[in-house]
Design a protein around this nucleic acid. Structure first.
Lengths: 149, 149
DNA sequence: TTCCTTGCAAAGGCTTTGCACACCG
DNA sequence: CGGTGTGCAAAGCCTTTGCAAGGAA
């Protein structure tokens, strides 16, 4: 059975990209994370195997994956740009403006909003690239405590 | 009658901030625009009156307004951070990923989504800081034409 | 062999900061 | 006057790019 990681590598090859140890490690890191990652986080994972990878290569490879439709890039704002492989289907990022962590929610939540935007605003909304800001459960409690104190 | 601009300036004073010609011009630019602006756009407006304002002062003043609850900052991603005074009530930014322009939509659209997020994900969503990405009407037509060609 | 990929370092773009001077209150 | 606010220039941060050397096919 092909792992998701191998599927991605095969797809890159098929599309005429050369495979290198660096690219393999980067794809592996992103595919195994099961979640979205920043370029810096990918570098960290890859560095656990070898120090012979440059941050520029990370950026170039992530862009390559996005350009070939094998990964998505989501700009969460505040300078946080995250990547995820496509198996990791569309989802909404729920970004906590206090701790910065992001949980994920089902895109289906937005179906009716997307329809309304198309009908009333003629705007074609891309739900694969979506972040909502607010407070996560933990930080809500922390802020409550601060307010009470 | 107090203009919105004067209201903001009075509020700043009340909160112990000193008023300077620079701050007045910056507040005026943002209050009169009736829309969200980047720091660079504010500078452009202010520069029409005088060249004696530095971009650092724009950033400092915009931060001041946000910190005092008189303006909001929204990170639209791709390095576009926009500011708006609070009279300019909450709204959704519909950002076109092709031309970069942002139109606005009513926050009420998201009411049910916000409720669901709170109930199912325990996430308290802040709708005053919100951007959705996609294609505006014009760019949809352009992309359609490119695809057909 | 060809020419795609990489590492390195430098350059970008946007934003923040340190400092001395200006000036509001 | 005292202390905040400003301009300037430099530094930061994240990301991209030019170039020569390395290496996949």
């Amino acid at each position: 059975m092909m792992t998701h990681c191998h599927t991605l590598i095969a797809a890159l090859r098929q599309q005429g990209c050369r495979m290198t140890p660096q690219r393999e490690m980067i794809v592996e890191a992103l595919a195994h994370s099961g979640c979205h990652m920043t370029a810096e986080e990918v570098l960290e994972i890859v560095r656990q195997k070898t120090s012979a990878v440059n941050i520029a290569t990370i950026y170039r490879t992530l862009d390559l994956l996005v350009d070939h439709g094998l990964a998505t890039r989501a700009d969460l704002g505040e300078g946080r740009v995250v990547y995820a492989t496509i198996r990791h289907g569309p989802h909404i990022h729920l970004v906590c403006r206090r701790c910065g962590r992001a949980q994920e929610a089902d895109t289906a939540l937005l179906a009716s909003v997307v329809d309304t935007l198309r009908e009333q605003y003629h705007f074609c909304c891309d739900t694969s690239h979506l972040a909502l800001y607010g407070l996560c459960e933990v930080c809500q409690q922390i802020e409550d405590r601060i307010r009470d104190a």
